[in-house]
Design a protein around this nucleic acid. Structure first.
Lengths: 219, 219
DNA sequence: GCTTCATCGGGACAAATGTCCTTTTTTGCT
DNA sequence: AGCAAAAAAGGACATTTGTCCCGATGAAGC
């Protein structure tokens, strides 16, 4: 616990009462940390591992909104707004989080300017990148979104494991079938190649042009 | 000026230094108040009239994000994030706004807990309804979105002027042509009728079913 | 009232995307 | 290695949406 407080400099934004109520909690790969629609109970801080955030519609359509690593905050909007969780948060690796129960946050955190300012900054960053992502999804075709996705998932010379391809389909908001079709097109164009259940990027520059400089950012 | 401070109880969230720097500014119908991509200079508070907020892509595609009435805040995200304006804000009637220059906000507002809390609340509300709207646009077909739009634009027995139909197309993120097609479908189904350059709602209940209880909310 | 012009509605076709289903490949088990 | 089950790839077709364009309709000036 102390180590996380040091590592993420939580003393800068929380005072004693809050720090004292922080609890460590762990989840295993695949566990649901926050379930869309439920009443919020805690504020979470991701300190170890990776998560994905997605929303489901009644019809079962999924839409992935973000991948997260440390240090990320969950449940802030819902806490402030006093409304049910908007999205589901799932562990994609084993994860460690710190949590604060909401009455505690209300009682101690909201009186403490550094903490409120911290939440404000967190929220704003989320807002900004969310707005970007939503706009991007709405305005561009799957081809552009895929290019963008591939770029943001890989660094120079890396490849995307096929295992994440269904996730990729959800993330960019299309069907698996159609994703395959577009992969085919990009392959024909010589930008990428399928090999050993993975996608290799052959021509990063062209992909970048296609993606119109827009890329999904990890938050 | 004083009248607005009373009306919206600004004393609850701003202290003297901020109140003293508030300036009144007016725009005429059709004026651009905030231009997407520009560097933010002011925080705005809409106190009179109505605005619409939209984003444009490089290709000229437009996407309307919200209609606003008093009391709305603009430029908060960009101020906190220190980043260019995300969207364009246009006056759809003559409007009156109060504004604060950002250095002032930085110097006085950010030290003042009630003000920071106020901004946090504003932002959160925006976030919540933005997320809803974005998800709605992404997950549902034009027909559903149109039903939703019609419901939220009209009260019992009102009609939607044809004049707003191009805006409607942008708002729900489709082409004017396609909007017409869907209007045709809903007309055939007997839910709405075209008459005198306006759309009349004939069967509100069925539209509501179609819209899946989701409606565009004014913010 | 007539002419001109802009706007509107809608036909025809094309492109993008979704659904369903069959074939192919991989994986896991024995 | 050999088989069964599961996952992936892709064909065929349907639906949704976009683009282009033309005839109809209404508004503005004379």
């Amino acid at each position: 616990m102390q180590i996380y407080i040091e590592k993420f400099q939580l003393r800068d934004v929380m005072h004693e009462p809050l720090l004292n109520h922080l609890r460590v909690v762990t989840y295993q790969k695949g566990d649901i940390i926050i379930q869309q629609g439920e009443q919020p109970a805690f504020l979470y801080f991701l300190v170890e591992g990776r998560t994905k955030v997605f929303a489901s519609s009644d019809e079962g359509k999924k839409l992935i909104l973000a991948f997260n690593g440390p240090f990320s905050v969950f449940g802030d909007i819902e806490f402030i707004q006093q409304a049910p969780y908007l999205n589901t948060v799932e562990a994609i690796t084993d994860v460690t989080l710190l949590k604060l129960s909401l009455p505690i946050v209300q009682q101690y955190g909201m009186q403490h300017l550094p903490f409120v300012t911290f939440i404000l900054n967190t929220l704003t960053r989320k807002f900004y990148s969310n707005a970007d992502a939503a706009r991007f999804n709405l305005m561009y075709a799957v081809e552009v979104r895929l290019a963008s996705y591939l770029l943001s998932m890989t660094t120079e010379d890396e490849s995307v494991s096929i295992h994440h391809l269904r996730d990729a389909a959800d993330l960019i908001g299309t069907s698996y079938r159609h994703l395959n079709r577009i992969i085919g097109q990009l392959t024909d164009a010589g930008y990428i190649a399928r090999k050993n259940r993975a996608i290799h990027i052959l021509n990063r520059d062209e992909l970048y042009k296609l993606a119109k400089q827009n890329i999904y950012e990890e938050r």
